[in-house]
Design a binder for these strands. Structure first.
Lengths: 132, 132
DNA sequence: TATAATATTATAATCATTACAATTATATGA
DNA sequence: TCATATAATTGTAATGATTATAATATTATA
């Protein structure tokens, strides 16, 4: 998986920031907030501004390479778009887990004339670690 | 359906504000923001403060009588808890529609040891009115 | 190299929500 | 009924993530 090539295929200049954000979001089970992304990138690029993080997110969102997750009020997280999956948020530790779900076979009805562009499934509860 | 009795059953004093908020949220296909709730209540109670709307929402949320919907970044909406349903947001007109979905038979796996307390399904796309 | 286009930065503004303290209304016991 | 405690409501200010805007730096390309 070469993030530089992915970016170029989408006509986006593969700047270091953009490559690094894609890389961060592709780590399994990582669903950072903009702030957490800023912290991560600061380790590698000490002079980066928070604006650059927001700009980078914006560019990647528009290209459809990443995705916003808004399970909770006041907590916007980001995720890569590698495959369809649901998100489980532990209400105890706050961690967000991916889980497998077949988005093409959800048992819904009543949207016959609607054009459905995206589907999100969010669960909340307690994760095994917190439920010992 | 008597909102006053519902509130009393949950040990909540049935103030006029609380009754009215429950009533607003029980209207089918209404998913107001806090701001929109404030506008609605202002029509009936001209002296109401926005703080009272937030307080009332908080009380009803804690009692499990209403529910937050956070489909989009920066747009928190509220919904009654009458039955399980999914939410479809039209990306053209912004309206949020309910749709039927069988939450007890979602095709997911991988959460064997997780305690699942709530499930939300959010779709986005274009509604029939906007897709003429 | 020169120029245009794009990326990055810094600063200030926005705006929904929250915090907090003061006031008002309601419930309950004497 | 009145006094007091409890809860509800209000007003003001603070918070904090995101956005807007303009200036600067970098990159691409002729």
């Amino acid at each position: 998986m070469n993030f530089k090539e992915i970016l170029m295929k989408h006509d986006i200049q593969p700047s270091n920031y953009r490559i690094k954000v894609l890389e961060c979001l592709s780590h399994y089970e990582e669903h950072p907030t903009a702030e957490e992304l800023y912290q991560s990138l600061s380790d590698v690029f000490p002079t980066i501004s928070k604006m650059s993080v927001y700009n980078t997110i914006e560019v990647l969102l528009n290209a459809g390479l990443i995705k916003r997750i808004t399970i909770e009020n006041n907590e916007v997280r980001y995720d890569s778009m590698l495959e369809n999956h649901g998100h489980f948020k532990c209400e105890s530790c706050g961690k967000v887990f991916n889980f497998d779900i077949d988005m093409d076979h959800l048992p819904f009805k009543g949207l016959e004339n609607f054009e459905i562009d995206s589907k999100d499934v969010y669960f909340k509860g307690i994760c095994p670690d917190c439920n010992h």
